[in-house]
Design a binder for these strands. Structure first.
Lengths: 246, 246
DNA sequence: CGGACATTTGAACACTCTCAAGATTTGTGG
DNA sequence: CCACAAATCTTGAGAGTGTTCAAATGTCCG
């Protein structure tokens, strides 16, 4: 079912989903050299304080951006799926103000900053596409802040499931009404700003309401309309070229 | 004390604080045409769903970015001070996914997108500076998410006061250990994801602890070291060229 | 089949909320 | 310059959502 995809393809799909690209631009993206690596869950890809000289592309699995408080709390502020470039901001913000880690077993690719810079000079519209990508990252942060600050835990979870469904569909990684999602509840709890105990209870409530069916490696949406309602979800902030869900 | 500042000057100061600029670049920024307007608190500058053809620069007072839930909750996800360009993202993200409003009486300036585009073509390094500015906006979102998701209300407020002190100092708008801040507690509550009743209690607690002295239009820091501690504050995420506080 | 890790469940507690009333401050008109 | 209206802030009390601690159950991998 999952035919072998060239490592660059998912990144191209992702960029195409937010910005029209010419054949030549697609070719330029396809020619970016990608050093592929397999990581186990929990692996720190880039640490706060680092000054990376390359960008990371997610090829398989999920990564996250996180920060810690001095009290030991961890907030996950972004979850990445295949095609995403989690640390694209390092191109112009040398010093990392957050950590980037794998939250599932995953495959990533590394591209030297230098190669990206050269590509942007040769194809200025790709530079704009990347800028736009960073702006959409920010739009997602805004939506997460609304989610965390104003909704109860039940709604927060519903909202994220809607978001993931739409983002994964845009790169062709949904399978009907479900998608692969091997992220632990403890990690999700850190993304919602709740305890892992409560996370378990909320998942239970979502299942009891007949909205979702969840296993350790997959989420299945049983009632998309009710889920949209529960998550108060509007995909505008994802700024996709065309965004029709499930 | 506050000698008359040209409307463009604060924006230039802000950009200089995050990116070195040549004299020629400063001149180009100074020549941007700015249509100045006075707004009263509560005025909506740009609405969600709009497609603005200009950017807004804050000259005096405070503006905020916000989103609403269908339940009527409002989350403020950014507060802007003079020199900031709140909707700079509209340059490459045509559709507004958030609202921009004045949260104090304020003076703003409008610059047509077209003029900014022309400036970026003539001075590519200014384009990079603006990209960098949007990346720092995102870095601030990340920090707010950590604040809202992982800290108790007391720490959230302490953290924001630290941030404002540093940002205002960078554009020369602090007065010793205090700064002008005519924002209501109800607005702040929406920024912290708490009720206005609790906001009042937290301000009380901060004052009782001897960290702050607050009036309706001004915040005075009484104990900077304790405030840093209480807010668990590290200014790295602001990405200022040199960031020495109070 | 054992062991590490992840999830579930119960119970007491805490931070924050809502509702409601009272106290202050600010702005405006006389 | 005073008086009143509107907005903002403060304070009290009861209710909730989510927390912590602790132990039991379940799942995956070597």
């Amino acid at each position: 079912m999952t035919r072998s995809i060239s490592p660059n393809d998912l990144m191209i799909r992702r960029l195409q989903s937010i910005h029209p690209l010419s054949n030549e631009e697609v070719r330029a993206l396809g020619e970016l050299p990608l050093e592929v690596a397999s990581l186990e869950s929990g692996h720190d890809i880039v640490r706060m304080g680092d000054r990376p000289k390359q960008c990371c592309v997610v090829i398989e699995g999920c990564t996250c951006i996180y920060k810690l408080t001095s009290e030991g709390g961890r907030q996950i502020m972004a979850i990445h799926v295949p095609g995403d470039i989690p640390d694209i901001q390092s191109l112009h913000l040398g010093l990392m103000d957050f950590g980037l880690a794998a939250i599932s077993a995953c495959t990533v690719g590394y591209i030297p900053h230098e190669k990206i810079q050269q590509m942007c000079e040769a194809h200025p519209r790709l530079g704009v596409a990347l800028w736009r990508e960073t702006l959409i990252d920010a739009a997602i942060y805004r939506d997460w802040m609304l989610n965390i600050g104003q909704r109860e835990a039940f709604g927060r979870v519903a909202h994220l499931v809607c978001e993931l469904m739409v983002r994964l569909k845009a790169v062709g990684l949904t399978e009907g009404d479900s998608f692969k999602f091997p992220v632990t509840q403890a990690n999700l709890a850190d993304a919602f700003g709740i305890s892992s105990v409560h996370m378990s209870r909320v998942y239970g409530a979502l299942a009891a309401s007949g909205l979702l069916k969840v296993t350790r490696s997959r989420i299945q949406v049983l009632d998309w309309d009710e889920l949209l309602e529960a998550g108060d979800f509007d995909p505008t902030y994802l700024h996709l070229e065309k965004s029709a869900p499930a």
